[in-house]
C-alpha cells in the first residue's frame, strides 16, 4: 500500500486534467447561461462562437510569431487574446443585429430563436473551416511544463511522476480571474445589475426604463469574451480543431443545465461536475488501485469504466439524470 504514490498518480491523471478541463467548460457554460438568462434562448452557436474567437486568436498569434513578438515563457496567444475577443465580439454583435434582433422585435417564441441559432451555428461552422481549414492547428508556444514528470520524481524520490503543464496552470489562473471579474461586474456595477434585473423580470425592467438593446449588447460582448477565452484556453491545452469545438457543445450545455440554466454560479459548478465525471469514468484506475490495494488484490484489467471514445456519453447521461430528477439544476436555475 502506497498512498503517496497513489495520490500523485491520481493528481497527475485525474485531478489536474479535470480541474483544467472543468475551468474551460465552466467558462463556456457561463456564456450559454448568460444568453439563456438574458436573451432567453439556448444558443446552439456557442461552440462555434468559441471556435471563431479561437481562430481569430490563432491567426493573430501566428502573425505575432512571424513578427517576432513573444510573451516570454507565456504563450503568445495570451497577447493575441484581446484582439481575438474584439474580432469575435464584432461578429457576434453583427449576428445579433442581422438575425436575433429581428426575432426579438417580433417577440418570437424561444424555440424560434433556438432554431435561428442552429442556423447561425452552421454558418459559423463553415466560416471557420473556410478561413482556417478543418485540420488540427498548433499555436501554443512558450514553456511547455512548469514541472515535468522526471523533475518531480527526482525532487521527491517517488516512483510516480507528476507533470504540470503550463497551459493547465494558465487555464486555472485565467478562469479564476475571469470569473471574479464577471461576478464583480454582475453584482457591483450598475450595468451588471441591469442585466440581472432584465434576467429576473423582463417586463418590470422595461417599465423601470432599462434599455433592453443596451443590456443585450453588453451581454453579447461579455459572451464573446467568455467564449473566446474558453476556446483559446482549450486550444492551448489540447489543440485547435474546429470539429472538436462543435463537439464541446454537449458538455457545455450539460454543465449549464446541471448547474441550473440562467445561474452563473451553477454554470461553474456544472462545469466541474461534468469534467470530473468525464475524466473519472474514462480513466483506467489500474495504477492507482495497484498502489492502494494489497498486492494479492491488484487488478489485472485496466479498471476503466468506459473507453475514452464514449466520454460524451457521460455528459449526456448526467444531463438526462438531472433533467429527470431535478430539471431546474443543482442551483435552481430556470427550468428548461
Amino acid at each position: 500500500m502506497d498512498f503517496l504514490n497513489a495520490f500523485v498518480a491520481l493528481s497527475n491523471f485525474v485531478l489536474i486534467p479535470a480541474i483544467a478541463y472543468g475551468s474551460q467548460l465552466a467558462l463556456g457554460a457561463l456564456g450559454v447561461t448568460l444568453i439563456y438568462g438574458i436573451l432567453r434562448f439556448s444558443n446552439f452557436a456557442h461552440g462555434d462562437t468559441m471556435a471563431f474567437g479561437t481562430m481569430a486568436t490563432v491567426l493573430i498569434t501566428w502573425w505575432f510569431q512571424s513578427m517576432g513578438i513573444s510573451f516570454g515563457p507565456l504563450p503568445t496567444a495570451l497577447l493575441a487574446l484581446p484582439f481575438g475577443i474584439a474580432v469575435c465580439a464584432a461578429l457576434v454583435l453583427l449576428t445579433d443585429r442581422g438575425i436575433y434582433r429581428f426575432y426579438r422585435r417580433v417577440k418570437a417564441k424561444p424555440i424560434i430563436l433556438v432554431m435561428a441559432s442552429l442556423g447561425v451555428m452552421f454558418i459559423m461552422n463553415g466560416l471557420v473551416r473556410f478561413i482556417i481549414g478543418p485540420d488540427d492547428q498548433r499555436f501554443a508556444d512558450g514553456a511547455r511544463f512548469i514541472v515535468t514528470a522526471g523533475e518531480f520524481k527526482k525532487m521527491t524520490g517517488l516512483s510516480e511522476g507528476l507533470a504540470l503543464k503550463s497551459t493547465q496552470a494558465i487555464t486555472l489562473v485565467t478562469a479564476i480571474v475571469v470569473v471574479a471579474a464577471l461576478f464583480w461586474f454582475l453584482n457591483k456595477t450598475r450595468t451588471g445589475k441591469s442585466m440581472r434585473a432584465y434576467s429576473d423580470n423582463e417586463d418590470l425592467a422595461l417599465l423601470s426604463g432599462i434599455n433592453p438593446e443596451r443590456v443585450v449588447m453588453v451581454t453579447w460582448l461579455i459572451v464573446a469574451g467568455l467564449a473566446t477565452i474558453a476556446g483559446v484556453l482549450y486550444g492551448l491545452d489540447k489543440s485547435f480543431k474546429p470539429f472538436t469545438y462543435f463537439q464541446l457543445l454537449l458538455p457545455i450545455f450539460a454543465s449549464a443545465i446541471v448547474g441550473g440554466l440562467g445561474n452563473p454560479l451553477g454554470a461553474i459548478a456544472g462545469g466541474f461536475v461534468i469534467a470530473f465525471s468525464e475524466v473519472m469514468v474514462t480513466y483506467a484506475w489500474k495504477k492507482v488501485a495497484g498502489y492502494i490495494l494489497p498486492e494479492a488484490w491488484a487488478p489485472d484489467g485496466l479498471v476503466q469504466l468506459m473507453s475514452t471514445d464514449y466520454k460524451f456519453a457521460v455528459s449526456f447521461a448526467i444531463l438526462l439524470i438531472v433533467l429527470l430528477f431535478k430539471p431546474t439544476g443543482l442551483f435552481k436555475g430556470k427550468s428548461v
Binding site: 456595477t189 434585473a197 418590470l204 432599462i210
Partner: peptide, 28 residues
C-alpha cells in the same frame, strides 16, 4: 406585483431611472 426578487427592496427602487451613468460600459 412584479419585483426583482433577488435584490433588496432598496436596490429594487434604485434600479428605476434608466439611462444612468453606470449603464455605460465606459463609465463602469
Amino acid at each position: 406585483a412584479h419585483e426583482f426578487s433577488s435584490m433588496t427592496c432598496r436596490e429594487n427602487l434604485m434600479m428605476v431611472p434608466g439611462n444612468q451613468a453606470g449603464e455605460q460600459l465606459w463609465n463602469t
